[in-house]
Design a protein around this nucleic acid. Structure first.
Lengths: 153, 153
DNA sequence: GGCGGTTAGTTGAGAGTTCAACAAAACCGA
DNA sequence: TCGGTTTTGTTGAACTCTCAACTAACCGCC
């Protein structure tokens, strides 16, 4: 208590507000496009992507939660929904009776394969096409720094 | 149709995933802190901020939607909720009978004033403290470029 | 004046997220 | 090996957001 607040100076203020507007707008565009073209939100798309990259297209729920940066609860609800759609199936883990393994079905893979080109195009259009190569590098360094900082604190 | 998808190269892939992890982690931290300390999500905090900066702490619903980058529907629901909390009041617009004017109450201002130092501290801790001054400048330029690009397309 | 088109804002339903509580199994030190 | 602690995953309720539909009022033009 008693410590004066270090308010944002005008430059920081401007940076923060632009950052908010940019990330919000970007994610809203991608989310809307993905919902329209593939019938799923971006968070669900990410789950399918990570599963598709895993050995045998299988991943423990906890690992899947980690790599997608999702809470266990959120993942649980999401996978339930993806299972309803027939894109993912849950299996018991042979080595840990608590565990569940999420498995991307063929139908799920096909849906992902159909959605991916449009989505990648969207990422390009809304993000990479707007930036110079130098800015892309800067954005990568900044993002990686922030990820380290977030997980480190 | 028939155009080959321009997939992301490894560098772009890495940039995109780091960007997703960084923005998601950052916003989740801030959202959780704000919910814990001030009892509101970040989106609601932003509404109070914009109202507090407006002349007489009043803003047309449509302008408020624009500056907060929110849909009219979202804003309508949010302001209803803020009105329940006693932080905002809605008034009829004198010049346009369709219009509604959102007005930040004294209680709303007090709540905002109480929440602001902690939130600013969070923004500093999670974002600015991790970056060099050069990176802050880069992030501002990148963000402003993206905002222009998003609204321009 | 009045008619068609546009803009402002709200509403309800459906979908996704958060949070806290919970059960079950694994882990671990005494 | 026992009992407390941690980990895993799910659940339901409360909350927020999205989308489409809708009302009301404004605008422009004949």
């Amino acid at each position: 208590m008693g410590v004066m607040t270090r308010w944002l100076d005008p430059d920081e203020q401007r940076t923060w507000r632009a950052f908010l507007a940019a990330t919000r707008g970007l994610m809203e565009n991608l989310d809307r496009e993905l919902q329209r073209d593939a019938g799923m939100p971006h968070a669900y798309y990410e789950i399918l992507v990570r599963l598709s990259e895993a050995p045998e297209r299988r991943l423990r729920m906890s690992e899947l939660a980690d790599v997608t940066g999702s809470s266990r609860s959120r993942l649980s609800h999401a996978v339930a929904r993806l299972e309803d759609a027939g894109w993912v199936r849950r299996e018991d883990c042979p080595t840990d009776r608590r565990g569940q393994i999420a498995h991307l079905t063929d139908a799920g893979f096909a849906t992902l394969a159909a959605a991916a080109p449009g989505h990648v195009e969207g990422v390009r259009r809304h993000l990479f096409d707007a930036l110079t190569p130098a800015q892309v590098t800067q954005l990568r360094r900044i993002s990686e720094t922030l990820v380290d900082h977030l997980t480190g604190s």
